[in-house]
Structure formats: structure tokens, C-alpha cells
Write a protein that binds this DNA or RNA. Structure first.
Lengths: 349, 349
DNA sequence: TTGTTTAAGTGAAACGTTTCATTCTATCGC
DNA sequence: GCGATAGAATGAAACGTTTCACTTAAACAA
């Protein structure tokens, strides 16, 4: 019959039960202080019997450390984020820290409110994926360490991927396959990462004289009428999307109009979200190491909490092209063989 | 120049600055006690100037309420959960409560550890989506209120959907369309919800003498060889999947073998995850009101925290068939018109 | 006037820890 | 045998609140 009762044993009670002082009990439990081996063992034994569990709140109040961090992301519903969140949570837990999660639903106001709530709750640090490039929350922080994901704010530790290179990779791939009329629908350009991707891709394509058009989109498969219009009138043989979600939207739209992907137009995405490979056709895209970035974020944060005055860090991860089935070749002699889960696509065009 | 410094003003300092006692300051800030209007206003004014923010930890220690709840789900990476989590977070925040999130990655051990960590951290309550049907965490709870999602554990408040009905709905739909050889690949049967769905569907189909076969699967689009084998040898004209993820896996496999969906075999899923409508063909499925369930979960939990001794609740939500494009008719005279985002599928078979 | 009631405000204990400063004992060097 | 030293254990303050019980003073009834 275990002590699963509602009331938890306190340190004082433990001390009394073991016949020692509260201080000794504390030292025993925390493996600190100068206690004799036998005393320590004795206290620990009693503690186990009584199922003593330290009250973390009291501890936190004394030490100023809660062992909790906050994670603020725009939208868990966007398939880009669950992986990130999951990895953050796992990594944190491995160090015994819990994570509060907040989602900001794209609003700077919500962002401020969430951060404010978390900070006042007394988190040790914050991992923040800002919606846009402005530091909406600086004044609310009151000294809480923050690492920023995917944006380029100054004054914080930064975790990023090499989006510029990603944009080039996508563009170069298309060009190499013979495409000379390329359209690009970007992500929302008030986001640094989207801008990086777009600028690099557009720059590269333009330098080759192959830019058909470019439009700004949102991180969603539901395309704005302005975009579908461009698409419908387009003579491009390939389009670069600023995110996989957008790419999927583009493909769906194209298909609904009876244009074959990649037969008639190729589409390349960005992010390599989990759906990408489940899509028909499976999405060629630029992947970034989300899990590694998440790990880096919590490690950086934990370190910053330890040493608040170390110089700021900026970690940039590599990206890579992952070829699947949504991109085809235009050069007459080229052949693409993509073996994707048993589906072999033969010569395209 | 605002007080964004690292150190926060304490109640004591506020009291001194306002020339009142600590008690009065506390009462003023909390809008309680018996204070004169002018005194109260004065204290509040000073508090605003000093940017006083109550230390939530101290408050929590005194009152025994942290204003935080835990959310324990199996796997954020499964597209079923982000919606749920997001809604829980939003709803909680509307009541000023923050949510700790933990994911258990399918392991009962992790589940126990996570719950344990959260409980010791001092959450006011827990929303728990158990992996299987066994109460792995009961002894760790120490009186923390819990509401259980999607399972049927006794001793807790329960939030469920009418899975049995869902299974029947799916089966009835297929039968109505003339299918007489139906296969079903279930979810993992150690999960209550999966069992409910499976039993109901299989029961219904069998009663019509139309069951071709049934196999147990996992909540994943990656199909076990045992399943693909059954699929390959199957003469079924339709298959019911225990989850959309499974349905997608089935469709992909079928397609890779050159069998048309829904032309040759129809597939119906369960859950209506966000991908469902993005899939090609768009998935016919049974939807459940995840957001409403999430809201109900936090409301139930908050109420339970308020009144621990109220009788336990069990809330069951309705499910509904959503017809899209992955199911076709077998009865010769039937015609299906599915208008799905501009794609019109004409007469099938 | 005197006693009673009410409003306004305060002192201090308590929540469960951590940790500094201190005391107590026993051992050691000589 | 004596002071010094080190090891073991403890007392109590402190962290920032909440809240009970109490005091003070003013207002009122008779």
C-alpha cells in the first residue's frame, strides 16, 4: 500500500521521521553538504519509504530556477512545427527541464501576450520562433535568456539554416534540368527566412535570364486568387515555392486545371515537411535539419542560462536538395529515374 | 525609460514605496481585502509606475495553484495531434493557464516519466491521451486531477468520440455503394478507440456477409509487410482503414501496384486529419470534432480543479462521414459527383 | 458621556525549500 | 593534557507571497 495519498511529505516531516534536522534532510536529498555516509543513507532510506518528493515550487523560489523553458511558435498546425516542437521537448526533458508551449497564431499581439505570460510565470529561458523580423517582445523579457529560431534579430542567440543557399540550390537544379522559364511564389516576405530563400532563388534565376515571374504568397496550400491567376496565365515550365505547403497548393491547382506535374510543369518546394514524400507526386524540395536545429536551440539556451555573459552565438545549418518526383527535366537528352517507394517514373517529356 | 531591468520589484518594495503595509499592497494588487478607494488607487498607481509584477512562484507556493496544466500526448508528429494540442493551448490560455506539453513516443515508460515530472513540478491538472488502455500513471498522480482523452479508463473524466458509430458509418457507406468484398486494416488494437472502430465496422460488414478480411496495423502510412501481402492478394473492392494515416498508406501502396483508387478499390479513413483533403485522391473519411473535444477537455479539467468532488463526467462527441474522392460506387446505376476544389470526378466504374 | 459597530489598515505566521553561520564532538599533533 | 583542526550536524534566515487575527480610529445610537 503505497503512499499515493493527496498530501505530499515535506522536508520537515522527513527530517522528523529520520530524527535529523531539516538542513540535514535537504543535504541528503540533494547529495550536498557534509553529511556522514551512514546518516545520509539513513535519511535516503526513510525518504524512499515515505516517498518524499521535493516541492519544486519551493525549490524554484529559493534558487530562482524553475527548470522550465518556454517554446513560442507561430502555428503548431503548420506541419513544419510539430517536428521542431517534439524535438525541443524531448531534448529538454533529457536535461530534466519541462517546456511550456505557446502558439501565436500569426499575431504579434498574441506573441507579446504569450511571452509575457511565460516570463511572469518564471521560465528559465525561451525558445522563440518569431512571426516576423521585429523584436516584439524585447521589453517584456526582464532578463530571461532567449534563443531565436529562423529569424535574424540582433541581441539574441540565433539558430538558422542556410536559406540563401537553399534558394540557389533549388534554382540551380531547375536550370540544370533545362528550365528557362521559371516562376517563383515566395513565402510572406516580412519573414527573414522567406526573404532569404526568395532573394537567392530569384537572384540566381534572373542572372540566367530565366525568370518568368514571381509572386508573394502565404505559408498555406490555399492559394490567393492573385497567385492562381499568375499560375493560370503562366508559361513557366517550373515553379519554385517558398515552402512545401505552398508547393502542394501549386501542384493541386495545376492538377485541377489539367496540367501535369511534373510532365508539363515542375514544382520544387522548401522545408521537406513530412507530407512532402506522401504527396502525389512526391515533392522535390530543399530540406533543412529541423531536428538538429531544435537540439541546437535547447542546448544553446541551456548553456546561455548557465553562462549569461558568454558572447552571443549564431548557428547556421546546411540545407540539401532532396530529389523526388515533382520535378522533371526539359533537356531533350536527359532521363530521370526516380525510384520512390516502388513507383518508378520513366523518362519525362 | 522603462524598468526592464533584470530585477523585479517585490511586494515589499512596492509597499514601502507606497507607504503602506505589505498586506495592503497585496490586497490592492489582488483587488481584495477592505481597503479605502483612495489608498487602493494610490497603491495601484505606484505599482504601475514601478512595473510591479507578482512573483507567480511565490504566489503558487502560498495558494497551491500554479495556473499550469500538463498535456501528455503520444506523438506530436502524428498529424492527428497538433490540432488537438493547439486548441488545448489556446483554450487554456484564454483562462490564463499555461500548458506544459510532453510527448510519450509510444512508450509506457516515457509516459510514466513525463507524468511524474509534471506532477512533481506542480501542475494543477493533466490532460492525458494514453497510449493504451491501461492506467500506467495512477499511482504517480498524488491527487492531481486528470481528464483522459480517447480512452476508456475508469476513475477519470473522459472525453471521447463515438467511434463505434464511426465504424458503422464507414461500413454502411461502403455497403450502400454496393461493395460486397470489404477489407479492413485496423489501428493497433491495444488502443480502445481503435478497437471500437474496428469492432463496429467489422461487426457491421460481417452482418452483411461482406467481410473479405481484416488485419491489424499501426498508426502510420508505412505498412507492415503482413498488411501489404494481404492487400496484394486481396479481392476486396473496398477497404476501411482505422486511421487516415493508414488509409494514405494503403492508397499509396495500391497505387504503386497500379491499382486505381477509387476506380478499382475504394478506401475510407478515420480522423479527418488535415492532409486528408490534400491527398490524391482526397480522402473520404470519418471526422471527429477534435477542436471541440480539446475545448471540452480543458473546460472539464478546469472545472474539476475547481470542484474535485463533483461526479466524474464522460463526454462523447458525434462523428460524421465526410465524402471526398477516395470512395467509389459499385452499384451499376449509381453516380458520384464529388466536387473537390475544382476537381470534378465523373461517373466511376 | 459611554459603549458598540463598522471600516480601514497592519503584523506576522505560514507555504517548503536552501544555505550561511554556527555549534558540537571527536581526533590529532605535540 | 591541551589547544587546534576537521568533520558532522543543526538553527534560523530568507525567497515573495497570502491571509488570519488583530488594532486603531471614526461614526453612531442611546
Amino acid at each position: 500500500m503505497t503512499n499515493s495519498a493527496l498530501k505530499r511529505i515535506t522536508l520537515k516531516e522527513l527530517a522528523k521521521a529520520a530524527g535529523v534536522s531539516v538542513a540535514s534532510a535537504s543535504y541528503a536529498v540533494n547529495g550536498a553538504g557534509s553529511l556522514g555516509d551512514s546518516t545520509r543513507a539513513h535519511i535516503l532510506k526513510i525518504a524512499a519509504e515515505l516517498e518524499y518528493r521535493p516541492n519544486q515550487l519551493a525549490k524554484a523560489m529559493k534558487t530562482g530556477r524553475t527548470g522550465a523553458i518556454g517554446l513560442v511558435v507561430p502555428d503548431l498546425t503548420n506541419p513544419f512545427f510539430p517536428n521542431l516542437a517534439q524535438t525541443v521537448i524531448q531534448t529538454a526533458r533529457r536535461s530534466g527541464v519541462s517546456v511550456f508551449i505557446a502558439n501565436t497564431e500569426g499575431s504579434a499581439d498574441q506573441e507579446r501576450k504569450s511571452v509575457s505570460l511565460l516570463v511572469e510565470r518564471g521560465i528559465d529561458g525561451l525558445i522563440w520562433f518569431p512571426i516576423v523580423d521585429t523584436d516584439t517582445v524585447g521589453p517584456l523579457l526582464r532578463g530571461t535568456p532567449v534563443v531565436v529560431l529562423d529569424r535574424n534579430l540582433s541581441g539574441y542567440d540565433l539558430i538558422q539554416a542556410d536559406y540563401g543557399r537553399g534558394g540557389e540550390l533549388a534554382a540551380a537544379h531547375l536550370i540544370a534540368l533545362g528550365h528557362r522559364h521559371i516562376g517563383v511564389v515566395t513565402g510572406p516576405l516580412d519573414a527573414w527566412s522567406a526573404r532569404q530563400r526568395a532573394n537567392a532563388a530569384i537572384g540566381y534565376i534572373r542572372a540566367q535570364g530565366s525568370l518568368a515571374w514571381s509572386v508573394e504568397g502565404a505559408f498555406s496550400p490555399d492559394l490567393d486568387p492573385a497567385i492562381t491567376k499568375v499560375l493560370d496565365e503562366s508559361r513557366a515550365t517550373a515553379v519554385i515555392a517558398g515552402a512545401d505547403l505552398i508547393a502542394i497548393g501549386v501542384i493541386r491547382h495545376l492538377q485541377s486545371k489539367g496540367v501535369a506535374v511534373p510532365g508539363e510543369v515542375s514544382v520544387i518546394g522548401f522545408d521537406d515537411i513530412p507530407w512532402a514524400q506522401l504527396n502525389t507526386p512526391a515533392l522535390t524540395t530543399i530540406e533543412m535539419p529541423v531536428e538538429e536545429m531544435a537540439v541546437a536551440a535547447v542546448e544553446t539556451l541551456l548553456r546561455r542560462i548557465e553562462k549569461p555573459s558568454e558572447p552571443l552565438r549564431r548557428v547556421v545549418f546546411n540545407v540539401a536538395l532532396v530529389e523526388r518526383a515533382s520535378v522533371g527535366s526539359l533537356s531533350s537528352e536527359a532521363t530521370i529515374q526516380v525510384d520512390e517507394g516502388g513507383i518508378t517514373l520513366g523518362r519525362l517529356k
